[in-house]
Design a protein around this nucleic acid. Structure first.
Length: 273
DNA sequence: CCATTGACCTGAGCGC
DNA sequence: TGCGCTCAGGTCAATG
């Protein structure tokens, strides 16, 4: 579910409430997520303080005072909730961490595509899991990215979704970014001209920034840690807008399956040539 | 090495 | 009311 703007919003929310707090208890309700939650999680985190919360692409890292950090990925339906010790466990709650100051952190994930893993320090946030360039740094790596992408026989949308080029973009923002860039989602990497590429990197920053400012997008069930909704979905120009009028021409927004996922675009405004 | 497909898992919404 | 089907914000292993 969550792409970079949603993960960023979650990280900021967690920072606001949990920074400097001390872990009193860790309880695993169900360890079977995408990867199993470590049996040692309580041992590794208890009496540690939260020092920072960092985002890298769609990943979050809770930095603790001890030997381990906690890396999380929310998959499609992962959510954190901050609540109090009298909280009643709900369906699909998988982990609970109790802190001092009477606060409790819950990880809930319906589809269990997310995960929580302990990672040993020191944290090399730059080469983290070998993922690609942070979107807000991508202009400094423009040449490098262009050289990589301009050889590819893959569609530009597939490339945007591949976290090894630019990280943090998912299915919603890929469509929105390509619409603003006036590039067909089906255009191949090798066919992008420099002008396309400039527009693309521009829109990557613009769209993601704007979405962060709105607290991300809530289309089904995404919520921030205090159950607040994001509001970027009202700004969608193409995602879920099949059959609606294009904002820039008389055409209707089209929807097509691409690599097994829905793509939304305007045929006229986003030429393939 | 590169590109494509299906698997992982649960729930919502739709047509019948 | 219920069944069966498709779809959903993401990755990753297996295949050609």
């Amino acid at each position: 579910m969550p792409e970079l703007p949603e993960v960023e919003t979650v990280c900021r929310g967690l920072s606001k409430k949990l920074l400097k707090l001390n872990v009193l208890k860790v309880k695993v309700f169900n360890k079977k997520l995408r990867y199993n939650i470590s049996k040692n999680i309580e041992k590794c985190l208890i009496h540690n303080k939260i020092k920072a919360i960092i985002r890298r692409g769609k990943n979050g890292i809770i930095v603790f005072s001890g030997k381990y950090n906690l890396h999380f990925h929310l998959g499609m339906t992962g959510k954190f909730l901050i609540t109090t010790p009298n909280y009643k466990k709900k369906k699909h709650d998988h982990l609970l961490i109790r802190f001092d100051e009477n606060l409790v952190l819950i990880y809930n994930d319906v589809r269990k595509f997310g995960y929580l893993e302990l990672i040993k320090k020191p944290l090399d946030i730059v080469s983290f899991r070998g993922i690609g360039i942070e979107p807000f740094l991508c202009k400094s790596f423009e040449k490098e990215l262009f050289l990589k992408i301009c050889k590819k026989e893959r569609s530009i949308k597939d490339i945007l979704l591949d976290q090894n080029y630019i990280c943090g973009i998912g299915n919603i923002y890929a469509s929105e970014i390509l619409y603003r860039s006036k590039i067909s989602p089906f255009k191949l990497g090798k066919n992008l001209c420099e002008n396309d590429f400039n527009n693309l990197l521009n829109s990557v920053e613009y769209i993601l920034n704007k979405a962060i400012k709105k607290g991300g997008s809530s289309i089904k069930n995404y919520k921030n840690i205090d159950e607040q909704l994001g509001y970027f979905q009202v700004e969608f120009k193409v995602y879920n807008k099949e059959g609606m009028a294009c904002h820039q021409c008389d055409n209707l927004i089209a929807k097509k399956k691409q690599s097994g996922r829905s793509t939304f675009f305007c045929k006229d405004c986003q030429p393939i040539n």
